[in-house]
Write a protein that binds this DNA or RNA. Structure first.
Lengths: 204, 204
DNA sequence: TTGTGATTGTGTTCACATTCACAATTAACA
DNA sequence: TGTTAATTGTGAATGTGAACACAATCACAA
C-alpha cells in the first residue's frame, strides 16, 4: 500500500494516536470523537481529522471513530500489524534498559537479536535473547531484520550503521550522540537525551 | 537576558550546534563556517546563520564563527553556563542508565538527587548519589532544583510531575509513555522511544 | 590602496503545516 | 417521518519555518 504525499509530520503523529487508541481499547471504549482523542494526545482536533483523511474516511459523522477499527488501520499504515524483527546493537546500560522495555513489544517490535563488542557480555542474556559479538553483525542479513536500534558509544555508531544498512536494515533508531550518514532509502531517527534536556533551561 | 520571538525550532537546534562546537573545541579548531558546521549537524547553512542571527552577529564575514566564542554564547543563551541542578525520578533500568550517562554532565547538568518508590532501591546508590524515597520528593524545593527527568512507569508520571512543579521545577524531560498536564510556565519534553521507533517501518 | 575570494546577515520567496469554519452526514428520538 | 444535536471531512485562510540569493563585510595579497 502506498499513499501519495503524506506529510512526515502526519506519520510522526500516527504512533501517538495508536498509543491512545490501545489505551482506549483496554478500557473497552468503542468509539471516540476527534475532539476527545485530541485531549488525550494534546493536539487540535482538526489536525487529527486531517491526518486521518490522508488514508481514507474512517469516521462516522455524528459519532466519531471506531476505536478498534482505527487502531487496526493505523497499525496497517505503519506496518506494525505483523511483528517487526528488530536488532539492538550495544548492550550497555541504555541498551539493556531498552531490551527489557515492554513498550516496544506492545507496538509490534520483536528484539530478536542483540549484539555487543564486550567479551564480558557476549554469551550473556537479556531476557531470552543471547548477546552476540558485533563481529557477527552481518548475520542479520539471513534473519530478514529491517529495523535496528543503535545504543553504542558514538565512535562505534557510524561503523555499526554501515554494516546494518549493508545487510538489509532500512530503519534505525539512533540513540548514540552523533549523526549518521546513510543512503536515502534508509530512515534514521536520532535521539540524544542530553540534547533534549538541553533546550529546557532556556525557557526557565 | 530575554530575546524576542525566537522560534522554538531555533532553540531546539542550539544544542545540536553546541554538541558540534564542543567536538571542534576538542580538536582545537578555532573557527568554522556555517557551511562546514552545517555538514556536521546535517542542516542547511542558511538555517544556522538565521538561527544565530536571532541573538546577535557573532560571525566574521569571510572567515566564519569563532568556535570557542560561539560555544560560550550558545551556553549562555541556553543557560548552561553554570551547572543546572537536576532531579531524576525513577531508578529503574532506564533511570539508572540515564544517571550513569556522562552526556548530561557535559552539557552542564548535575543530577544531584534521585528518587524511587521501591523499598529495595531506596538507600542504594547510583554513582555518588543516594536514592531517596519518592515520599520525600517535596524536599527538592530546598535545593533549588529547576530541571527534572521523569523515568517512572506511566501511571506514576502525572503525580510525580505535579509534585515537581509544585516544588519549583520548570523544565521536565518526560521519558514515561504518557503526556503530562502542567502549567504553561513549565516546559515539558516528552520522549517515548517506542513511538519514535514506530514511525520507521512506514518508510520501508 | 585596490582587487579578489570567502562568508556572513538578511529581505524575499516559497513550501508546508496548522487552524478555521462550515456543508454534509449520521444517530437518536419524538 | 421530521427535527435536533453531534461530528466528520475538507476548502480556504492563516501562520510559520526553510531555502534562496545577494549585498555587505572582511582578510589578505599584490
Amino acid at each position: 500500500m502506498r499513499y501519495q504525499k503524506v506529510p512526515d509530520e502526519t506519520i510522526r503523529r500516527l504512533p501517538r494516536y495508536l498509543r491512545a487508541l490501545l489505551f482506549l481499547q483496554q478500557r473497552k471504549t468503542e468509539s471516540i470523537s476527534s475532539q476527545k482523542l485530541a485531549e488525550y494526545v494534546q493536539l487540535n482536533s482538526a489536525v487529527i481529522r486531517k491526518d486521518l483523511s490522508h488514508f481514507g474516511a474512517f469516521g462516522k459523522r455524528g459519532t466519531g471513530y471506531n476505536v478498534s477499527l482505527l487502531s487496526k488501520t493505523i497499525r496497517d499504515i505503519l506496518k506494525l500489524n505483523k511483528p517487526q524483527k528488530t536488532v539492538l546493537v550495544g548492550a550497555g546500560r541504555l541498551g539493556t534498559a531498552i531490551a527489557s522495555f515492554p513498550g516496544f513489544k506492545r507496538y509490534g517490535f520483536d528484539i530478536t537479536a542483540i549484539y555487543d563488542n564486550s567479551k564480558a557480555k557476549i554469551g550473556g542474556k537479556i531476557g531470552d535473547t543471547t548477546i552476540k559479538s558485533t563481529s557477527r553483525l552481518a548475520d542479520i542479513r539471513r534473519s530478514e531484520i529491517k529495523m535496528a536500534i543503535i545504543a553504542t558509544p558514538p565512535d562505534a555508531a557510524q561503523e555499526t550503521a554501515d554494516i546494518l544498512v549493508e545487510n538489509g536494515v532500512t530503519g534505525i533508531l539512533n540513540l548514540s550522540s552523533c549523526y549518521l550518514k546513510v543512503p536515502k532509502r534508509v530512515k534514521v531517527r536520532t535521539i540524544d537525551l542530553a540534547m533534549e534536556l538541553s533546550m529546557l533551561p532556556y525557557y526557565s
